[in-house]
Amino acid sequence: MGTALVTGATAGIGRAFARALAARGHDVVLVARDADRLLSVAAELRGAYGVGAEVLPADLAGDTEAVEKRLRSTERPIDLLVNNAGFALGRSFLNNDIADEERMLDVLVRAVLRLTHAALPGMIERGHGAVVNVSSVAAWVPRGTYSAAKAWVTAFSEGLVPQVAGTGVRVMVLAPGYTRTEFHARAAMNMSRLPSWMWLDSDALVVAALRDLDSGRTVSVPGLVYRLAGAVLPRLPRRLVLALGQQHPARRSRSRPSQ
């Protein structure tokens, strides 16, 4: 089944991707900042699925060089790249430190750009492979830097599709909605007002995403409510979409964001 590299692999959607891919028989390269958690996840996957699990600690906000080097390696080449790493800030743009805003852009945009650029040439040369870039339904509604970055991920990924057509390589963008992970807690967001029917399960989400990848979809939007939103939002008057962007179910908690 080849080897998959997953960023942000120690929790949430990234960990669910690593688990699902290992279950399919992929060896995995796990990328995240926390080396201890990486080792724990790698041991879990080796024990449960008998696959190879390589760990690559890296802070993608500061230095992507080691991950790019691994993506370009011809030894145990990477057949599937999942650009999942990311975080949000719990405050609004004008209340955030600009260094934190830049760090978020580095992870959500710059790292996706560089890792995709490192991965695709080798995949094209080998005649097979895939890149999955994790965006968000937040890309459809303007709401600060996070949604702007995710809009970039979506447009960037869709723009790559015709460039790899006929090469045997696929590019897909995954746009999940609210998902039960550590994501909101790390941003110190209180999501208690969000109704239960709006939450997605990360494992089910990844199953749907991989099914969409297998079927050749360009954009994967798991969950009926979010698929409907994806169909409706682009057709709404821009003034209404902008107004929706001012509404948010999260409340700021007292703790500072954890990155």
Rank of each mutant, 00 (worst) to 15 (best):
V6Q: 02
V6F: 07
T7P: 09
T7M: 06
I13S: 01
I13T: 02
G14A: 08
R15A: 11
R19C: 06
A22I: 04
H26I: 00
V31T: 07
V31L: 07
D34F: 13
L39E: 14
L45N: 09
L45H: 06
R46Q: 06
R46S: 09
V55M: 08
L56H: 12
P57L: 10
K69R: 15
R70W: 10
R70C: 07
S73Q: 12
S73E: 10
T74V: 12
E75V: 15
L81R: 05
L89Y: 13
R91P: 09
R91C: 05
S92F: 15
F93L: 06
L94K: 14
L94I: 14
N96I: 05
D100V: 03
E102A: 15
E102I: 14
R103S: 10
R103N: 07
M104Q: 12
D106I: 08
L108S: 05
V109R: 08
R110Q: 11
A111N: 08
T116K: 09
T116E: 10
H128R: 15
V132G: 02
V134A: 03
A138T: 02
W140H: 13
P142F: 05
R143F: 12
G144M: 03
G144I: 01
T145S: 14
Y146T: 00
A151P: 10
W152R: 05
F156S: 02
G159W: 11
V164D: 03
G168S: 10
V169S: 07
V169Q: 07
R170Q: 14
A175S: 12
G177I: 00
Y178I: 00
A185W: 11
A187T: 04
M191A: 09
R193F: 10
S196A: 15
M198I: 02
L200M: 11
D203K: 10
A204C: 04
A204Y: 08
L205G: 02
V207C: 05
V207M: 03
A209E: 01
R211L: 02
D214L: 11
G216F: 08
G216D: 04
P222M: 00
L224R: 11
V232W: 08
R235M: 09
L236R: 05
R238A: 14
L240S: 01
V241R: 01
L242G: 08
Q247D: 07
H248Y: 12
A250H: 11
R252Y: 06
R252S: 03
S253F: 12
S253H: 10
P257V: 04
